[in-house]
Nucleic acid binder design. Structure first.
Length: 887
RNA sequence: GGGCGGGUAGCUCAGUGGGAGAGCGCCGGCCUUACAAGCCGGAUGUCGCAGGUUCAAGCCCUGUCCCGCCUACCA
């Protein structure tokens, strides 16, 4: 560490150094036997194929800020990192890599392929961890977990077996979402709906023995090959007579029944007739079960037409088949209408392929019994959502929950612990069973693996050692906080709630804090295909992690999307630099610091003021962080540090450090500066950990409770005395200086030009305070003289600035621009007159004075009085100027 | 179809009943010995639109128009 601080802050080396040193020093290590109250968060696991994006950067910023805050407050703090194995995504990535070498997954065989995936993970799977370090995240790396770890895998088997024993996991042949490209089943949540402008085809099904036809409409004409009925409403007089009869299914030579079904059919919609394809449509599937209809699969797992589709179509790709079917129907005159129709197509979340409903045997979790306690827990407030409005979304989904298809036809993942025997026996077991318990025959394990989300649902307790009864679980479960994006509320939050309650008997987290989405500056979702992603690592490389963190924290207002603009980051980089330079200044001036006890009697007004401000700011920031208002906390700190500490305290203290107030005041100001800076750095540390740690290490503190700022104590407001009188005096001082500066600025006078000023007032306290600080005012306002006088005693040819308690006049003999001065005053008068008018109207309204709270009325009276006094003085000033300009 | 959120300065956004704010940008003046990534000063708004409640509305209510998101088996 070089003793000299460079003029400009360079984040790169400093951030890299601290990221390592904190870890080496064990600053973030959580102990299971820590007697202090716990604060714990598990990071919702990012997947191993991922690289850090802005969403992660936001998660890490928010969580790290809160975690560092709690750690400094003295909680036994655990922040647990890890990642999930992302079955589909990872398998796809590795398959693609192998394909480049000309290798197919099937050629390798299951075991060899899984081995390849592990190798891939070893090489590429830790990228996100490195990036997490770059953000400064204070996680406990020794507790890092991966969903495929031995312990977590044991937890998965345990949960599967127990749910199966209770009948909450079952196997069934039913319609599921199938991705023809990934070749696996998907859960409802892994399917995204995309609005599309489609078409609606109306097809006519002839009624045998006459010219009558039944018209049905469809958005997927190719599925008509799999129709096994036509449904009408049982009460519809148009068709009632046909129920129980048959119609001809065109192109197939088959006849299918007409059924009456009040649930499926809305007689008002379209023709009032619906074709029923139980094997290719979810609502038709249900209808088929109700009426015991045959299920005819005409599209296979690859999206091709089966033999059942008929000779003319078998083997065709599904969309090509659609065209052929339409053409054939048209040819036969059975296509009565084609209209444009807005619709939504289902796509695979991972590969974007159009998902196909497919009849298939899969494993499911019965959700309703698990959802009930999870709903109850939130109703009772055992888990609280922030912002609260998300509870509604949670309830909505939980109350209409559907069973969860958990089997996936993949190789990478937790293999389902179920074994089949030729005798029909199914064994579900934690360990591989030696033989069939019924017939003693050989067993074959289910080929499928579990949905990745099945293992992440266990994350809050599997990472802490469950199913073992560990000390870590006892100490840190339930976790304090789940912090994540609202887009993940069903994937994680809801499922973690259900599993936590089921297996731990208690909610997995006390609070769910849902942050907004990060978008680009135009409000678009960032995505690689749109090419609008902002890579956090680029931003960190350019401006530093501190700047990025402060930006995200500032913009993380609750319940609102974050439109990130790089200009904003650049702006906050300036703030980081400001912190750096304020520290440089302080360190230069703390030279020869006396380490003796602070002596309040030696304090200057500025010392008393800044200490009082430390009190207020500590209170505000602490409260804002307790309430997850990171944006308020960061704004408070920004203003305090820059516009109070730097702009006023440091400027005011320069002469004190130069010795102008004597050695005792100088020594005390040094001590106060040190303590104010120390306070500011502590408060800022959760937001900008790197720069604050670097500076804090160089502070000549007489004692350190900790080797690192990261593990030091959060400031106590009461350590800083409140001093309302000092605050009031400072307001006068600031007003006087600002008054002169404003006149100088508006009269276009060079800042170096020496001027003479006079303060006019009949208010003794203000006058006394200002005269006590005459030297300071001379210095800051660059005056050569400052006099005092009563109201009306204006120096000739002077410009005036009116404040509530006094007027500041600046002599402008020979320099005055009468017209400019008149314009300025006239404008000020006009504004004040408007204000006066509004106040008068209000006060003359009896319903206001009668009904408004007395303190509001009183405030209004004061406002009016002040306004009138101000107006009077402004008018006098204006007539004075007019008089002088005529001379 | 249902639900949720948003529309405030040129831009990005704070502001949940008592005279609209910030950052960036803009204009003018400054290399004042911590910082030009800086300092000092300044300008800028029918708070989407229309009603209503209230002594008082950016904020609460109703309607309406845009924008975004979530959710849903209308063929």
């Amino acid at each position: 560490m070089s003793p000299e601080l460079s003029k400009q802050y360079d984040a790169t080396d400093i951030e890299r150094r601290w990221a390592r040193e904190w870890i080496d020093a064990g600053c973030f290590t959580a102990r299971d036997d820590d007697p202090r109250p716990a604060f714990s968060i598990v990071i919702p696991p990012p997947n191993i194929t991922g690289t850090l994006h802005m969403g992660h950067a936001l998660v890490l910023t928010i969580q790290d800020t809160l975690v560092r805050f709690k750690r400094m407050q003295g909680f036994a703090t655990l922040w647990l990192p890890g990642s999930d194995h992302a079955g589909i995504a990872t398998q796809m990535v590795v398959e693609r890599a192998l394909a480049k070498e000309g290798i197919q997954r099937k050629d390798l065989g299951r075991e060899a392929f899984v081995q390849k995936v592990w190798e891939w993970k070893a090489r590429h799977g830790s990228r996100i961890q490195e990036q997490t370090r770059a953000m400064g995240a204070s996680v406990d790396w020794r507790r890092e977990r991966f969903t495929m770890d031995e312990g977590l895998s044991a937890a998965v088997r345990e949960v599967f077996v127990r749910l199966h024993q209770e009948g909450l996991i079952y196997r069934d042949q039913r319609l599921i979402n199938w991705c023809p490209r990934c070749q696996t089943a998907l859960s409802d949540l892994e399917v995204v709906l995309e609005p599309t402008s489609g078409k609606l085809w109306t097809i006519e099904y002839p009624v045998p023995g006459g010219a009558r036809r039944l018209a049905v409409a469809t958005t997927r004409p190719e599925t008509m090959l799999g129709d096994t009925a036509v449904a009408v409403h049982p009460d519809d007089p148009r068709y009632r007579d046909l129920i129980g009869q048959e119609v001809e299914l065109p192109l197939t030579g088959r006849r299918i029944p007409v059924i009456g079904d009040a649930e499926l059919v809305d007689p008002e919609f379209g023709t009032g007739c619906v074709k029923v394809t139980p094997a290719h449509d979810f609502s038709d599937f249900e209808t088929g079960r109700r009426h015991h209809l045959p299920q005819l699969t005409v599209i296979d797992t690859r999206g091709r037409m089966t033999r059942e589709a008929g000779e003319a179509f078998a083997g065709l790709e599904r969309f090509e088949c659609r065209e052929r079917v339409v053409a054939a129907l048209q040819e036969q005159g059975l296509l009565s209408k084609i209209s444009d129709y807005p619709t939504e197509i289902s796509r695979c979340q991972r590969c974007n392929e159009i998902v196909e409903p497919l009849l298939s045997r899969q494993w499911f979790v019965r959700m309703e019994p698990l959802a009930r306690p999870a709903i109850e827990a939130v109703r009772q407030g055992r888990t609280v959502f922030v912002p609260k409005s998300w509870e509604k979304t949670y309830f909505e989904w939980m109350e209409n929950i559907r069973d969860w298809c958990i089997s996936r036809q993949l190789w990478w993942g937790h293999r389902i612990p179920a074994w089949f025997c030729g005798c029909g026996e199914i064994v579900v077991s934690r360990e591989t069973p030696p033989a069939c318990p019924r017939c003693g025959g050989a067993l074959k394990q289910d080929e499928d693996v579990l949905d990745t989300w099945f293992s992440s649902a266990l994350w809050p307790f599997s990472t802490l050692g469950w199913p073992e009864r560990t000390q870590a679980l006892a100490k840190f479960y339930p976790t304090s906080l789940m912090e994540t994006g609202f887009d993940i509320i069903f994937f994680w939050v809801a499922r973690m709630m259900m599993m936590g309650l089921k297996f731990m008997g208690e909610v997995p987290f006390r609070t769910v804090y849902l942050h907004a989405m990060v978008r680009d500056e135009r409000g678009q979702k960032m995505s690689k295909t749109k090419g609008n992603v902002i890579d956090p690592l680029d931003v960190i490389g350019k401006w530093g992690a501190d700047a990025l963190r402060f930006t995200l924290a500032s913009m993380a207002a609750q319940g609102r999307d974050i439109k990130l603009s790089l200009e904003r980051v650049e702006g906050y980089r300036h703030f980081v630099n400001k912190i750096w330079n304020a520290a440089r200044f302080a360190l230069l001036n703390l030279d020869g610091l006396s380490l003796q006890e602070s002596r309040p009697a030696d304090r200057t007004l500025y010392d008393r003021w800044i200490l009082s401000r430390c009190h207020a700011v500590t209170t505000e920031v602490t409260q804002a962080l307790e309430e997850y208002r990171l944006n308020d906390a960061s704004a408070t700190l920004y203003n305090f540090f820059w516009h109070e500490l730097c702009d006023w305290y440091l400027e005011l203290t320069k002469p004190v450090f130069a010795g102008q107030a004597g050695p005792a005041a100088r020594a005390e100001s040094q001590r106060v500066l040190l303590s104010a800076l120390d306070c500011a750095l502590r408060l800022l540390h959760p937001f900008v950990p790197f720069v604050t740690e670097e500076i804090w290490q160089r502070l000549p503190l007489s004692e350190r409770s900790s080797h690192h700022l990261a593990t030091s104590a959060w400031p106590q407001a009461d350590a800083f005395p409140r001093d309302p009188e000092a605050v009031r005096e400072m307001e006068w001082l600031i007003a006087a200086v600002t008054g002169v500066r404003t006149i100088r600025g508006e009269s276009n006078l060079p800042p170096g030009k020496p001027l003479s000023a006079k303060v006019l007032t009949d208010r003794a306290p203000a006058r006394e305070a200002l005269s006590r600080h005459r030297d300071t005012i001379l210095h800051l306002a660059r005056l050569e003289s400052l006099e005092f006088g009563g109201p009306g005693q204006r120096p000739p040819q002077s410009a005036v600035f009116v404040t509530p308690d006094f007027e500041v006049c600046v002599s402008l003999k020979g320099l005055i621009d009468f017209e400019a001065e008149k314009r300025r005053l006239a404008k000020d008068i006009q504004k004040s007159e408007q204000e006066e008018g509004r106040s008068k109207d209000k006060l003359s309204n009896p319903s206001f004075t009668d009904r408004a709270p007395p303190e509001i009325v009183q405030k209004e009276r004061e406002r009016l009085a002040e306004c009138q006094s101000r107006l009077e003085r402004l008018r006098r000033a204006l007539s004075q100027i007019e008089a002088w300009s005529r001379e």
